[in-house]
Amino acid sequence: MNILWLSVSDPEPGLGNYANLFESEALPRIIWTTVRICIITTLLSVSLGYCLAYAMVHAYRKEQNMMLTFLLVSFWISILVRTFSWLMLLGRKGLVNEWLDAIGIISEPIAFMRNELGVLIGMVHYMVPYAVLPLLVNMQTLDQRVMSASRNLGATGAQTFFRIYLPMTKPGIVASVLLVFILSLGFYVTPAVLGGGKVLMVAEYISVQLLITLKWGIAAMLAALMLFGVLVMLWVMNRFMKLSTVFGGATS
């Protein structure tokens, strides 16, 4: 609530900070960039995470443990290390470009990094483990007999997946989407580095306003806006399904 107060009181009382949203040419663009990147990141991360979680749940016990270990270890690798590793791999003179060049497929390096594509690659890579966990928990609690029942009733594998498995993992998908989207909103290290400075997202902008330009009112306004946006998203999702089932409540 302190944030809300600051957003209408600094530098002077009034809604001046909010008016900035409409008057400034840049703010809507930054917000749109942020929302766009976060949505794409969320879609890709959750899709990939879904495949991974599915593979893990259906792997043999030993492989499952190994995959889970890899997943958890990835949480410990520093964001800077990961970010710079992507540069080594996909940069202008990174391994991939050098290799493509060497076998003659390209003559000019492909710009994977230092642009929005780079930001997406880095962010998806960072978010996938987060996307996997809620899905994994959800999938592990499913009664496999229900899937057997579907097969028994004549459904093909694809029908069983789309009509039974996917709807039953909806709570996991929603939890995963919420987690990844909210984390993405607050993410700035990867966009700052892999975007080559050209991909400015709200979280980074807020930190600049707080620490460098001392425009705390703007920072508070944007933070309040993000908070509000997340609340609206939760509310909308709640309209479609009971969020209590997402956060561990009973399914019936």
Binding site: D143, R145, V146, S148, A149, S150, R151, N152, L153, G154, A155, T156, I164, P167, M168, K170, T251, S252
Partner: peptide, 20 residues
């Protein structure tokens, strides 16, 4: 013959109804 082609009905332990 795979299970979905056998056309056998089955009542599972715990029923395995589709909850959604």
């Amino acid at each position: 013959t795979p299970p979905e082609k056998r056309n056998f009905g089955m009542v599972f332990q715990g029923y395995a109804l589709f909850p959604h």
